[in-house]
């Protein structure tokens, strides 16, 4: 009996030694997340986190996603654990994740703290900048042991952004209004990453100095700012009807010059590598606005 215990102990110790892999990263909430072995079962609790995990090359290791995780299409095959704001904890725990990619402002903190209490490692995904996006991809890749792919994806993303910056950011400024939502009318201030996209493309966010991250506006505020270009997302990927409303204001510079542009919201309102595509479209649109000055 004693021998058996001794043997088991020795065996376990050897296993541990063999696995001194140990990786630590710092997440977007400045918490240190350490794993003893690479994550093989990842729960991605926001559509953005799912995209980042796939970009990091860890897509095959994602075992749980949430509603609206529609990209890449492989993500739609993965089991859902409910909506991000109301998780089915039971199903999530039953999937035995060894890494949880949580969404700080989208998942209820009470539910995430239950997961933490159960001993699951939590990595908060909350990128606020281009470098945050690249950093998150690298971190996830590191935790999942897919560094090569992750580094490549992060580098491609950063290179693309740098290219856009050198191409557009020194061009003449375009006063831009980005419409986040229609009713109520919403935009964002300069703390938001979409503001960085606007600046990257040589635009100026007309509401950059608002006190709130996502200010609510009325039409009057937009008319007074008289932006040269209006860029809107929409309810869907092809639905540009929000822009039609601006045509009722013929004195608006953007309306006069027909600078009412649509950028598919999934390409810009999710801080993921696809933001590069969204940024490209926005830069081209703003450039079009410049050309229409003559």
């Amino acid at each position: 009996m004693f021998l058996k215990i001794a043997l088991t102990t020795a065996f376990t110790a050897m296993l541990c030694l063999a696995n001194v892999w140990g990786q630590c990263v710092v997440d977007d909430k400045e918490h240190e997340v350490c794993l003893e072995r690479s994550a093989t079962r990842i729960a991605a609790l926001s559509p953005g986190a799912t995209e980042l995990a796939f970009a990091a090359g860890a897509g095959e290791r994602v075992v749980a996603v949430v509603s609206f995780s529609d990209y890449p299409s492989a993500a739609q095959e993965i089991e859902s654990v409910g909506s991000p704001s109301r998780l089915d904890l039971e199903r999530l725990v039953a999937l035995k994740p060894d890494l949880v990619l949580a969404w700080g402002t989208g998942n209820p903190s009470e539910q995430i703290s239950v997961l933490a209490r159960l001993g699951l490692p939590i990595y908060y995904v909350e990128p606020h900048s281009f470098s945050d996006i690249a950093g998150d991809i690298r971190d996830i890749a590191l935790l999942a042991g897919t560094e090569t792919q992750g580094d490549r994806a992060a580098q491609t993303f950063l290179n693309g952004i740098a290219e856009l910056r050198s191409q557009y950011s020194n061009k003449p400024r375009v006063a831009t209004f980005y419409q986040v939502w229609d009713e109520p009318l919403m935009t964002m201030n300069d703390e938001h990453y979409i503001n960085q996209v606007v600046e990257l493309c040589g635009g100026i966010n007309v509401f950059a100095d608002s006190s709130r991250l996502i200010p609510r506006l009325n039409n009057e505020a937009v008319l007074i700012k008289n932006p040269e270009a209006i860029i809107a997302g929409g309810m869907g990927e092809r639905n540009a009807h929000w822009l039609e409303a601006w045509r009722t204001f013929p004195n608006l510079l953007a309306t006069q010059r027909d600078n009412l542009f649509f950028v598919p919201p999934s390409l810009i309102q999710r801080p993921t590598p696809r933001l590069l595509e969204g940024a490209k479209i926005m830069c081209q649109r703003l450039d079009l606005a410049r050309q229409r000055r003559n």
Binding site: E79, V81, G82, S83, R86, D88, R91
Partner: peptide, 11 residues
């Protein structure tokens, strides 16, 4: 609330 349309949870 937690089972009828699981994994979606109702209040």
């Amino acid at each position: 609330a937690r089972t009828v349309i699981a994994p979606e949870q109702l209040p």
